[in-house]
Amino acid sequence: MKEVLRIANLSQAFNGTTVLHDVNFSLAAGDRLAVLGPSGSGKTTLLRLIAGLEPPKRGDIIINEKAASRAGEVLILPEHREVALVFQGLALFPHLCALDQIAFAARGRGGRESALGLLESIGLGHRANAPLDQLSGGERQRIALARALAQRPKILLMDEPFASLDDEKRGEMRDLLRSLLERDETTLIMVTHSRDDALDLARRVLVLDQGGQVASDPLEKVLFSPQHVAVVRALGLGQVIPGEAFAPGKAETVFGKVCTTIGTKPGHVRLLVRPSQPRIVSGLEGVEAEVVSLELRPSDAREVRRVAVVRVAGNRLRLFVRERVLSVGERVRVQIEGECEPVEG
């Protein structure tokens, strides 16, 4: 596959504060990258740098094998990058109707005909002449997406594009986006806080934490062997507990002795506990814990499960309640089953 984007040692700072530090990755045509991380981790800044809306402090951005930005300089202007951006606030033009929003971006690429086709494809052909203030939130999202795609960009950047939609609409938008991206082999970089968006659309994941890159791997690798606490948190893969590795494959935690992966080095470690691992056990197994609260949580979109939060020496752990009914204040014995992976951070 042809490489469409290469980011090398990219850094950015505002007023002396570093917001992005040494980011490196590359994407091929048709790749889909989800950028995850807590608020203020530099996700939006990364998109703005790739779009050419601001010059980086250090590093290079290479688009289609041409240097697009380098330290302090935007070499290819945003209008010539073949990059589209769906802004977090959508940035639709207040003075244009739905069709003209898209036609604005489709000039020289099929014009109004093409814009009308795109409007039809997002199911809004009947709203072509509707002014912006008469469009619903979902319709605006779709128009922003269509406007970006009307540019026929090589790279589509999206900054939390579905943030204001409900779950059902999000699902619809993801399906629509996937079909449009597959049609044109467009490369996608999507900033999101939503695990569902990332799992549904991305093939690769980039996780940022305090401006630094802590993971840039295929989705599968990130899901099955996360290396950093920020990745665990960003994708909601489980909980991280502190422990002390004392022998190969063994560690001591406040929740008792647990198994770890073989390669875990002795000493202080942080261990990933997947949601299915902690259990309430009977008899003398495990360690005694106090039930602090009881919650109902969906394990996925279809099933709601009971969750208990238990506490041992100030450390809290969430676990699915399977067998019995618990009450707050009750003392139970808990055990972490299976192998816990060590994570950094």
Binding site: A51, L53, L77, P78, E79, H80, R81, V83, A84, L85, F87, G89, A91, F93, P94, H95, F104, A105, R107, G108, R147, A148, A150, Q151
Partner: peptide
């Protein structure tokens, strides 16, 4: 006039004068 509108117009391939005439001025 939000700066994002001008950025969006730039990404849609419009130069500085066009951005001003088509996006900034009407708004």
């Amino acid at each position: 006039v939000p700066k994002e509108l001008e950025s969006a117009a730039a990404l849609a391939g419009r130069g500085p004068w066009e951005r001003f005439a088509a996006v900034v001025l009407p708004n």
